[in-house]
């Protein structure tokens, strides 16, 4: 009797351990599928001419070489493209945050004629198709003589309904008492927005900032359309362009791709708290 129950307990414990092992096996396998292609590219970027097409393929390169990582800076002038990307991302991100944060304030806090109309117009941009958007924006930028300049890359995306709605939602979650107190003290609306509202809206701003950062950093198509001079390309567009030119030296392209991924991954890892909460918020809102 006693031994049998002990055996049953042991069996149950063994089943539990087996379950956990199975679970982690599944988790690790999925992780290998989602990160595998990048790991393989990383491995390739650390290889030499000799072992890139080695047979059988070397998962971990022998020897590990940093030649491609260095060569890609020397030969492809990666810094040029990274500087373009930083320029586009920094200015585009800053302007998007300022414009959205300003526009969201009256929509969250003020009553004024035309408010509903503006709301409707903003919502309509989220649902209406804009199939000719790129064409018309290209023509507009041509008329403004901005084609082949970096502002052409970020200007069209600065005013967007998504950012405004996200920040409006954030403002609405902030209690209005502090603003009223500042108003009683005689502060103007701009001062209230800057000193009282913005500091409290940091989480929402952070969410918008991360999403916008990714959007700008990874954008490749629009720069390809509005920039004619490849020297002005941001990194994603440049990689696509270089990949075609460096077919026979793929290791350099692999190394360049690795460099292009680092900033996005760093931002994502360090701020993923805001990212996931922001996504959940956007879903609910």
């Amino acid at each position: 009797m006693d031994t049998r129950s002990r055996a049953a307990r042991r069996l149950r414990r063994a089943w539990k351990v087996a379950q956990i092992v199975l679970l982690y096996t599944a988790l690790v396998s999925v992780a290998l599928v989602t990160t595998g292609p990048f790991l393989w590219l990383l491995s390739t970027s650390l290889k030499t001419v000799g072992n890139v097409y080695a047979f059988p393929p070397q998962i971990i390169p022998r020897p590990v070489s940093l030649d491609n990582m260095i060569g890609v800076w020397r030969l492809l002038e990666l810094q040029k493209y990274l500087l373009n990307t930083i320029h586009i991302t920094a200015v585009g991100l800053f302007l998007t945050l300022v414009v959205s944060a300003l526009a969201a304030y009256p929509l969250a806090r003020m009553e004024f004629p035309g408010r509903n109309l503006i709301f409707l117009a903003l919502v309509s941009t989220l649902v209406l198709p804009n199939p000719a958007g790129m064409i018309i924006n290209f023509l507009t930028l041509q008329k403004l003589r901005l084609i082949n300049t970096l502002p052409a890359v970020y200007l069209p995306s600065i005013g967007n309904a998504f950012g405004i709605f996200l920040l409006r939602q954030t403002y609405l979650s902030i209690p209005a008492e502090m603003e009223d107190a500042a108003r009683v003290d005689g502060a103007g609306e701009l001062a209230i927005w800057w000193r009282v509202v913005l500091p409290l809206a940091k989480p929402g701003i952070a969410t918008l900032a991360i999403m916008n950062f990714m959007g700008h950093w990874n954008n490749f198509l629009w720069p390809l359309i509005v920039l004619q001079d490849p020297d002005k390309y941001p990194i994603a567009t440049a990689l696509q362009y270089l990949e075609g030119m460096f077919q026979d030296n793929f290791r350099f392209v692999a190394a360049g791709t690795m460099f292009s991924m680092v900033p996005v991954l760093v931002v994502f890892f360090s701020m993923q708290r805001y990212f996931v909460s922001g996504l959940a918020g956007a879903l609910k809102g």
Binding site: S100, Y105, F112, I136, N137
Partner: peptide, 30 residues
């Protein structure tokens, strides 16, 4: 207060008028 509200909205409205609303309408024309 109304003027203040529109002043806050102005940069976004101008940019969206040029790069979002105009393309939606113009796309249906061309």
């Amino acid at each position: 207060r109304w003027v203040t509200a529109y002043a806050f909205l102005l940069p976004a409205l101008v940019l969206m008028a040029v790069f979002t609303f105009y393309p939606i309408i113009m796309g249906m024309v061309i």
